[in-house]
Design a protein around this nucleic acid. Structure first.
Ligand SMILES: Nc1ccn([C@H]2C[C@H](O)[C@@H](COP(=O)(O)OP(=O)(O)OP(=O)(O)O)O2)c(=O)n1
Ligand SMILES: [Mg+2]
Length: 914
DNA sequence: TGGGGTGTT
DNA sequence: AACACCC
């Protein structure tokens, strides 16, 4: 009944697993805890692989009919995930048996503990009995696991745009493209890395290839095993994470085969062994997709094993399971799984829950809800999006044989105004509002006049959407279609339910008209205020009073050591956070003619109550109305005013007209990077980056819209004219009063490049490099900052020039990995008007040709490990994307807009959503 | 007294 | 809103 459904590995496998646990580099002897580890990876001669002919055939025919197993799918499953994260966080735990505890449950444990008989999902009591020395760490807060999880997934997107997450610790990667690329370039060896299922080390028939499939999949899977090996190796090098890999021709089989050798090993499954693998499963339940319910139904039919399903008649299955499920189950049990790897996007829901023995009073409930909401709102703030739906779930205590279906929930739309101006400053205000909304739902779930007994509360945000660029400044405009559509939508079939909950002060009422289609599209063309920022940069949370800025100057100097940390973070350009400039003017002035008291009542931060604050409101604003608005809304309005300032419409008084960077917006909040770096906020960096990031956003918006074909006039590039951005930049520079001229030049130069890049559209790598630059900037690393920018001015002129050649020290270039010593990254001479893109070339020398944008002096001045990582990144990206870039350049199709899950960044469009 | 997620009905 | 599935 429990889900610890590891099926048994073969006996010999178990022995090896225990003793041969290799926590180091998979492909070579490595050392761990002072012990010499035996490499787990054995290589096998590739029997039927002498066919450059069949390779080419496969490569050109693939996709058209006739190829039985065209795909190569890799499944990655992290070893004892939570436990591994905790061992990274506290290395002292590494050599001890460790269990991760959630309440009374030990949800997972490390392999040391498993050797002693402890299993996943065991009660703490049983685990302690089995192993009195067991060290327990609480795993109720998933924050660190979530962060590491996204960092892993992001890492994997370097190898393929098609990465699908399953839970926190599993990923499917469709590596078909990279396999084809390596085959095409001859960039592979005649070996299979790791285990071969059913024909393994001890298998007698190792050199035999019984009725080999002729579709070419043997070569592809062999190359796939090499890629998997590279991936797992890099994953360990870069994140210190060990995992299992399964390589096969569909998701089902790659997942199943991945679990056959644990931990830290990989297994390849060829079609000839598929039936053997399936029949080794003891129970249908072990087929992912066959859950508890389906299993019970099948059981009632006398069906328990995979073989039973295989021999059952589809008609009979359909009677009990319904047609769709029956077909699915039958195919799965035959090893057939046509489902594609679905590229992941931003999460669609965000929830926080807690369980307990007993909660029976409203005040307790309110307290618990508040607690949950607060932490959830912090996550939401980092995400940068805003929820349109809120849901409250409770579990009521039920005696005896209650099942699992004892949760009840209520949900409601959230008025957008609740999240206007949402920032760390206003988090508590928003929390208060949400709490009222939540308690409103609570009374719908629980009869508070009667005694009650809850054992769980869950709060969740859903329908997460990018913050609207449309501010409340014109929200109430009669022509605001967004508001209208909001008012029209969301009133579900149960028209009386799901009503808009407010804190009682809100006059908005949801009308009950029909819901129009196409709202999402509308949002996508209007939600343009998503910015790209940097993971590392912390948010300013207070209104600038000069003090912060002063500290920031020191911070710039202090931050040099961060250079060292740079290599811990990835150079992956897709790993960047967004920032939003929901700036607030420093309120050194009063709202003239308005009641200061009302501002205070509304919680508007004025820095000091004793001072007088003034701000000139635009003429068309009714000041008395303005003063009555909640602080968050006032803040947003001020922001909109101050933006207009740049266009000369209004002028705010006072020296500080700084736009304040408040909320990092989504994209990849989920990366781990931020945490590994200095947690110190760096306002100066923020201010500067804000300008850049805004530029990036604008560029991205442009590209997104281009790609989406949802292009509307308001989002054309010229409306984000470079000059206005530079204006903004100058303002920020001045206000921060700390930036050197060099930096300013660097920044403005980037903008030029960005515009160029955006106009060109098809230079994936170059776009990424621009973003890398942003990374470098916010790391306050001058060297890295300049790395890409020194070719700046000449960039527009030197299109035809030769690539920079740099002699790298051997160990730096490719870490002594002789597989790649012959690979060179170089710039292809482009036809006039085209941008350069690095491509792989074969070179006999240990020279490294680097992209034109890179200043070789600076590159060489970087620490070796950083050099190495940068090179790795170039290499991997150019390999994994080369084909796609070409396809793009031909502008053959518009597959770009495939992912509708969330609006994505430039990079995601190039690397994530195809 | 587990703490998350996804998609479908 | 519940239920199915996944980790
Ligand atoms: N019902 C479950 C299943 C899993 N997890 C969490 C704990 C695990 O650490 C993580 C990954 O699940 P796995 O089934 O992959 O288990 P592990 O990664 O811990 O161990 P293994 O090495 O067997 O993969 O998800 C959970 O909280 N609840
Ligand atoms: Mg795992």
């Amino acid at each position: 009944m429990d889900s610890s459904d590891e099926f048994n590995s073969p006996e010999y496998g178990s022995d090896i697993d225990v003793e041969d646990e290799d926590w180091g580099k998979p492909t070579s002897c490595s050392y761990s805890d002072g012990q010499i580890q035996i490499p787990v990876t054995s290589t096998h001669a590739l029997q039927q692989c002498n066919e450059s002919r069949s390779i080419k055939t496969a490569s050109s025919d693939r996709g058209s009919a006739g190829i039985e197993h065209p795909r190569t799918i890799l499944h990655i499953d992290i070893d004892c995930f939570y436990a591994q994260v905790e061992m990274i966080r506290n290395p002292e735990l590494k050599d001890k048996p460790l269990g991760i505890q959630q309440k009374y449950l030990m949800v997972t444990c490390n392999y040391k503990a498993r050797e002693l008989g402890v299993t996943k999902m065991m009660s703490v009591k049983d685990a302690k009995e089995k192993c009195p020395n067991l060290v327990l760490v609480s795993g109720e807060d998933l924050t660190h696991y979530r962060q590491m999880s996204y960092q892993i997934s992001e890492f994997l997107t370097r190898y393929s745009s098609e990465v699908e997450r399953l839970g926190f610790d599993e990923n499917f990667i469709d590596i078909t493209d990279m396999v084809q690329q390596r085959i095409h370039l001859g960039n592979y060896i005649p070996e299979i890395k790791g285990h071969i299922y059913g024909r393994d080390d001890f298998s007698v028939s190792k050199d035999l290839s019984p009725e080999s499939c002729i579709c070419g999949c043997h070569t592809r899977l062999a190359v796939g095993s090499q890629i998997a090996d590279d991936i797992r190796d890099s994953l360990f090098q870069e994140l210190g994470i060990t995992c299992c890999g399964g390589i096969s021709y569909n998701k089902l089989l790659s997942k199943l085969v991945a679990g056959t050798h644990k931990p830290n090993q990989q297994t390849t499954l060829f079609p000839e062994q598929t039936q053997e693998l399936l029949k080794s499963l003891k129970h249908v339940r072990q087929i992912p997709g066959v859950g508890w319910n389906t299993c019970k139904i099948l059981e009632a039919m006398g069906i328990t094993t995979v073989r039973d399903v295989q021999s059952a008649l589809l008609e009979n299955l359909e009677k009990e399971l319904g047609k769709p499920l029956a077909v699915t189950v039958k195919k799965l049990c035959d090893g057939i799984d046509d489902t594609p790897v679905h590229p992941y996007g931003l999460p669609q829901t965000m929830s926080d829950e807690d369980s307990f023995r007993k909660l029976s009073s409203v005040s307790e409930a309110k307290e618990k809800i508040r607690e949950l909401l607060h932490s959830l709102l912090k996550r939401l703030l980092e995400d940068g999006r805003v929820p349109r739906t809120f849901r409250l779930t409770v579990r009521k205590f039920q005696t005896g044989m209650n099942k699992y279906t004892c949760r009840e929930s209520r949900q409601c739309p959230v008025v957008p105004s609740v999240f206007f101006g949402f920032s760390s400053d206003t988090l508590n205000q928003v929390c208060n509002q949400m709490e009222k909304i939540a308690m409103n739902l609570f009374t719908k779930l629980v009869d508070t006049n009667q005694p009650f007994h809850l054992t769980l509360i869950n709060v969740a945000f859903a329908k997460l959407e990018q913050k609207s660029k449309i501010s409340i400044a014109n929200y109430f405009s009669p022509t605001n279609q967004k508001r209208k559509e909001f008012e029209e939508k969301d009133e579900e079939p149960n028209a009386k339910r799901d009503r808009l909950d407010t804190d009682g002060d809100d006059h908005i009422r949801i009308s009950q008209e029909k819901k129009p289609a196409g709202l999402l599209k509308w949002f996508r063309t209007n939600f343009t205020s998503k910015d790209i920022g940097n993971n590392n940069t912390k948010v300013l949370d207070t209104v600038g009073d000069g003090g912060d800025i002063h500290r920031s100057q020191k911070s710039v100097v202090d931050n040099k050591p961060q250079l060292h940390q740079f290599n811990k973070t990835r150079l992956s350009a897709s790993c960047f956070k967004n920032y939003q400039t929901t700036g607030v003017a420093s309120l050194e002035k009063v709202f003239e003619g308005t009641s200061v008291q009302s501002m205070k009542n509304n919680g508007l931060q004025t820095g000091s109550d004793k001072h007088s604050y003034t701000i000139n409101l635009p003429r068309e604003v009714d000041q008395s109305v303005f003063s009555e608005l909640p602080a968050s809304i006032q803040q947003e309005l001020i922001q909109s005013f101050s933006k207009e300032t740049q266009t000369g419409q209004i002028k705010c008084n006072g020296k500080n007209g700084i736009l304040q960077q408040t909320s990092p917006a989504s994209e990849i909040t989920y990366a781990y990077k931020r945490q590994t770096l200095s947690g110190k906020s760096n306002p100066s960096s923020n201010c500067r980056v804000t300008g850049i990031s805004r530029k990036i956003i604008d560029s991205r918006t442009f590209i997104n819209n281009k790609l989406d074909q949802g292009f509307t006039e308001q989002n054309t590039l010229h409306s984000y004219s470079s000059s206005s951005v530079q204006e903004t930049l100058k303002n920020e520079q001045t206000d921060c009063t700390i930036q050197s001229c060099n930096e300013i030049e660097g920044v403005t130069h980037i903008e030029k490049q960005l515009v160029t890049v955006c106009n060109c559209l098809h230079s994936c790598v170059q776009v990424e490099q621009q973003i890398s630059l942003i990374d470098a900037c916010t790391h306050n690393n001058q060297s890295l900052h300049n790395l890409y920018s020194s070719t700046g001015e000449s960039d527009q002129n030197n299109c035809g020039k030769q690539s920079g050649m740099v002699k790298c020290s051997e160990e730096n270039a490719f870490g002594g990995d002789n597989k790649y010593l012959k690979q060179t990254i170089c710039i292809e001479d482009d036809p006039p008007g085209e941008t350069q893109k690095p491509q792989l070339r074969i070179s006999p020398e240990k020279h490294l040709e680097i992209p034109l944008d890179v200043d070789k002096e600076i590159f060489l001045s970087l620490p070796p490990d950083i050099q190495k990582e940068i090179i790795q990144d170039w290499k991997i990206r150019s390999e994994s994307h080369a084909i796609k870039i070409d396809v793009n350049a031909n502008s053959t199709n518009g597959k770009m807009s495939k992912s509708t899950k969330a609006s994505k960044g430039i990079l995601s469009y190039f690397s994530n959503a195809e």
